[in-house]
Write a protein that binds this DNA or RNA. Sequence first.
DNA 1: CGTCCTCCTGACCATTTGGTCAATATTCTC
DNA 2: GAGAATATTGACCAAATGGTCAGGAGGACG
Lengths: 207, 207
Amino acid sequence: MNVERPRTRIQKKNRETILDAALAVFSAEGFRGATLDQIAETAGLSKPNLLYYFASKEAIYSELLSTLLDTWLDPLRALDEAGDPVDEIVGYVMRKLQMSRDMPRESRLFAQEIVQGAPRILEQIEGPLRRLVDDKAALVTRWIDTGRIAALDPYHLIFSIWATTQHYADFNTQVCSILKPEGDAHMDDAATFLSAFYRRALDPRQL
Amino acid sequence: MNVERPRTRIQKKNRETILDAALAVFSAEGFRGATLDQIAETAGLSKPNLLYYFASKEAIYSELLSTLLDTWLDPLRALDEAGDPVDEIVGYVMRKLQMSRDMPRESRLFAQEIVQGAPRILEQIEGPLRRLVDDKAALVTRWIDTGRIAALDPYHLIFSIWATTQHYADFNTQVCSILKPEGDAHMDDAATFLSAFYRRALDPRQL
DNA sequence: CGTCCTCCTGACCATTTGGTCAATATTCTC
DNA sequence: GAGAATATTGACCAAATGGTCAGGAGGACG
């Protein structure tokens, strides 16, 4: 089974089942911490069966990463030059926060990969991701130059958005330990905070 | 060797050597990814010798975490009610950023532990850390109530500071991949950005 | 110099884990 | 429903890994 494109419906279903189980296990345990047995059990399949669909543990992991990275960047892609600059960026922040709420496993998966030096997706980061960021940073610079937004380094602005929004997925344990109620009730508070925060920081008036 | 306090100078030296090597390996590979052999080699000691000084891999890891957490919180502790509110918070941001620059291994160690649900320091987070944060959040609230700083949720404000500053240590690989020059030259840019960013967001005038 | 205590190591062990394979079961196609 | 293609599994393997242990070095101290 060195196949790339699934040919039968069983293949499609099982590959999806495996990838979903792998996402759960890898995001919770990291690459090294996850075991094929765990993934197999989560998926409800036998270990040799996993290896019938994927060549190796690494193959599962790599396919996960590259499949998800694309989705992960959608919110940034949607940044639109035509809209109001401040609204656009605040909108991006909200979309990214929504993603942390809806896809915390994906967020943690990337977080762990990158913390460890991104050994398996460095290429994707230096290629597509970097190009996208360069593109959007140029857009922000245009907004700055026309005085429609505060003059703040666009790259570091984007980093700050990644950091503040992904924090709620990646460090959810810590957030919940400090904010009394469990659950993601505080996600709404986070949205309120970040919205006001970025609106204040970006407003071109003042100072 | 179930000793807690080192008694001889050899003990003290070797325990330090081991903890330093462990910090390097654990922060780069995570708890599960790190091996005793790696730590032993990094420390220049034999594996059985490690286990002469520490009861187990877990024991090394736990001692590392609890030793470092205290230092990690110093910047927040220094937040001073007597100073100018905006300057105090910006100062906190700068101290925290400095820590990400000087102690990236420690930052990554905590990051990985918390991403995985903080299984081994949850107690410390729910106890001392939470108390400290509650304390400082109350201080920020006082500043808000007297109109000396913008009205922003103090807990989420603190989270945003952790997120934005630690980002430069934890996701350093990504930052370097997007910002052309390697090295930590961009740490200065980060300081400039964060300083301006928080100053704008916190200024009590406007809006 | 002898002896006690600390320090260190080679050899070894049990378990875990990624991965293989031949054989069997299931599904698909005509 | 026969036969080919696809799917699944139990049994097994080699390497890695956390940890043990008996015994040997090495230093401190009388």
